[in-house]
Design a protein around this nucleic acid. Structure first.
Length: 699
RNA sequence: GCCGGCAUAGCUCAGCUGGUAGAGCAGCUGAUUCGUAAUCAGCAGGUCCGCGGUUCGAGUCCGCGUGCCGGCUCCA
């Protein structure tokens, strides 16, 4: 009988008869190991423990101590959940059920919606299936057989997957009792290996089959699982904890902003406290811009459609803009002709298409809607709430001739833009319909592109560093070679993409290159951060653009006395004030550093006779530029302190007889508690120093 | 936009199977003058998101709309 030579992780070798399984190997080491085996890693590849070993090999038994264990465990939980759903709701069709970062989900197609109370029933059934300790077994077969099997079982989604993924090689299915799933594996050897109390079904959500909105919408059940009940509890506690720092909750509690149904969804009203934070941030960035040679400009909130036809924003991005504002004269003429709303929009679009045709030709781009023809007298123009600031800034640049000696020209503006985000996308301050970008556009020579992009990136780094934002990732967004949504020539795209890559390399932080993530006019470098519930948001962005300069026919005179085309760079280190402040609220959990805190100091007189002293101290602090209030209500000190703590005021200065006599204040820090008595003037200087340096520490 | 859930006082929430609303905090008034996270008492506060419908009767049931929440899709 043939033998197998098996090498263990510690380098030792053992011999087993042919047909031995990983489980046999584990048993040979210890019964406990065999019992704890999730799967086996054979020559570096994960396999099920009960399968015969393929030959001589290196083997490692995967237990709950291994890095791969959690993923296997969760995936088996996903099957367990689908198994339970099929038992409770036999009419449900199963789709896909992968593991994700903090758990797993499974998609089902079922006529009736899952109700939240169904989740508990499913969990219960999962535990029941665990108690059956049903073996989970892999079976390999040709894809046709798998497809037929799933078709016979009335599982069209699985049959489709078998067809799509199988074509070239045999596929595998996993069976546990009556439940079959199309799956690569590996899995735990039986349902009894899953421990009750280590998983939790979290929510039901809609999700399109294969992520395509043209496909049917399925029902997705999100869940999580950990290797121990303790870890699950910890994770659930973290989720609860995260909810407490949600900017929507804190924004309300700390009165930082308000969204009013009557003003409109996605439109932020900055209340005084939030406005203070925003103003401080704008002051900060303005200082940095002056240091880096930017010029500040102001532009209006609207622009003629013509402008956006030239830029390419209209009508291409029509669906994500507020509808055009038609000029009153044009509207009157159209009304006289009994022109319907639809017809009116037709005329606006036809006019834009005609103009876009000539511009697009220059930009070397396929023309959109060029087929429409309309008599000139029916062409309408109107205005658009600006979706971007660049066209206005471009017009400032092109309002006068430029020599290469002028370049780079850096125009900055806190410019407010409006975009018609889909209603389902709106989210607190992080996804809104009107927002202010800390925008700037740099116009430079081709030779200057690298240095300018690097300058922009260093600005982002300074800003993130000052605010202590360290947990972000950097994405270099490149064009998707298969898509036609881009404007401009391949040659210019190649140059721009290379410039971005180069600049990113000099950044000193890891970055990923992601095709399909470019803007329609050029590649970009984005700084992406997560909110409290793990959603990613793009904040700072730097974008290289060879195309808008062509569309607007921008020029400068070179040293050779010939006309040259400048390159544009779009950049916004915060991205938008709304989103950035939303993220900052969560980052600081509402406890802003001194320089940003809406209220920096609160004076707390012990009794009425100390109020006038506190008012005097407050005046001194205000004169020095600090934001100070006095809590003169006839409440006990403990009460006032509790309130100031909840409102996250960085410093509370308590004053009673002792302090009045000494001209001092008793300092209590939001973080750090009682710091003892300090001379009032001395402490003022300490605070001024911290504000000037924009330090993060509150102690 | 799509799927699901939710909407009661300024805030957080209670209100069983239909019988025209309640608490805590906040607010106001008064008393208390107090030393590092809640002093006591009284008062006031609600078109139960909006519009229809079913019913003798709707906060509660049904339909439509609006907004919010989670997810999907999208994000120049």
């Amino acid at each position: 009988m043939a033998e197998l030579n098996v090498t263990l992780p510690d380098g030792s070798r053992r011999v087993f008869p042919e047909g031995a399984t990983a489980l046999d190997v584990a048993r040979g080491i210890s019964p406990r190991l065999a019992d704890a085996a999730f799967a086996a890693k054979i020559d570096g590849r994960l396999r099920d423990v009960y399968l015969p070993l393929p030959g001589d090999c290196h083997i490692e038994i995967v237990t709950n101590r291994c890095a791969d264990a959690l993923d296997i465990y969760r995936h088996s939980c996903a099957h367990l959940m689908a198994n339970a759903v099929k038992e409770l709701f036999p009419e449900a069709k199963i789709a896909i059920g992968p593991t994700i970062e903090n758990g797993f989900y499974y998609d089902f197609d079922r006529p009736e919606p899952f109700q939240p109370e169904d989740l508990a029933k499913i969990e219960e059934r999962m535990e029941e299936i665990i108690s059956r300790d049903t073996p989970i077994r892999r079976e390999e077969m040709p894809w046709e057989k798998a497809r037929d099997l799933f078709e016979k079982e009335g599982e069209p989604y699985k049959a489709e997957l078998a067809f799509e993924r199988g074509q070239n090689e045999p596929v595998s299915i996993y069976r546990q009792g009556q439940f079959n799933d199309f799956c690569r594996g590996p899995h735990l050897p039986s349902t009894g290996k899953i421990k009750p109390g280590t998983f939790k079904l979290l929510s039901v959500a809609g999700a399109y089959w294969k992520g395509d909105e043209h496909n049917k919408m399925l029902q997705r059940i999100y869940a999580t699982a950990f290797l121990s009940a303790k870890e699950l509890e910890e994770h659930l506690a973290r989720l609860e904890e995260a909810k407490l720092r949600d900017h929507r909750k804190l924004g309300k509690e700390l009165k930082l902003f308000h969204i009013d149904e009557d003003v409109g969804p996605g439109l932020i009203l900055w209340t005084p406290a939030g406005a203070t934070i925003r103003q401080e941030l704008q002051n900060f960035i303005s200082e940095e811009l002056r240091k880096q040679g930017y010029a500040q400009v102001f532009t209006p909130h609207i622009g003629k459609l013509t402008l956006y036809k030239t830029s390419g924003h209209f009508p291409y991005y029509k669906d994500s803009q507020f509808p055009a504002i038609v000029a009153p004269e044009s509207l009157a003429v159209a009304l006289e002709e009994n022109c319907s709303c639809a017809e009116l929009m037709n005329r606006v679009e036809a006019a834009s298409a005609r103009l876009a045709a000539s511009v697009n030709e220059r930009a070397g781009r396929e023309v959109i809607g060029a087929g429409q023809v309309m008599p000139d007298d029916q062409l309408l123009d109107g205005f658009l709430l600006k979706p971007m600031n660049c066209p206005h800034h471009i017009k400032i640049f092109s309002s006068q001739p430029h020599s290469y000696r002028d370049l780079p020209v850096r125009l900055a503006e806190f410019g407010t833009v409006y975009r018609w985000e889909q209603s389902g996308e709106l989210n607190g301050m992080t996804r809104v319909r009107g927002f202010t970008q800390d925008d700037a556009h740099l116009f430079c020579t081709e030779d200057q592109v690298g240095a300018e992009v690097r300058g922009c990136l260093s600005l982002v780094k300074i800003i993130f560093g000052t605010l202590g934002l360290a947990d972000y990732r950097v994405r270099v967004g490149l064009r998707d070679p298969d898509s036609k949504k881009y404007t401009g020539t391949a040659d210019n795209w190649d140059k721009a993409e290379e410039a971005c890559r180069d600049a990113a390399r000099t950044l000193g932080v890891p970055f990923t290159e992601e095709p399909g993530e470019a803007a329609f006019y050029g590649p970009k470098i984005d700084f992406i951060i997560r909110d409290v519930i793990g959603r990613e948001w793009q904040l700072g962005t730097v974008q290289v653009d060879y195309n808008l300069p062509i569309r607007f026919d921008l020029t400068y005179t070179g040293a050779d006395n010939a006309m040259h085309r400048p390159v544009m760079i779009h950049r916004a280190p915060f991205g938008s004030m709304e989103r950035f402040v939303g993220i900052l609220i969560e980052h600081f959990k509402g406890a802003f550093p001194l320089w940003l805190a809406p209220e920096q100091v609160r004076l707390l007189p012990i009794a009425d006779r100390h109020v006038s002293y506190c008012n005097t101290v407050a005046e001194n602090y205000r004169a020095a530029g600090l934001r100070v209030s006095v809590d003169s209500r006839p409440e006990k000190t403990g009460y006032k302190i509790r309130e100031a703590q909840l409102q996250k005021v960085p410093y509370m200065l308590v004053a009673g007889d002792r302090e009045v006599d000494a001209g001092a204040v008793s300092v209590r820090a939001l973080k750090g508690g009682d710091l003892g008595v300090r001379p009032s003037g001395e402490f003022l200087e300490t605070l001024r120093g911290r504000v000037a340096k924009r330090t993060l520490e509150l102690e």
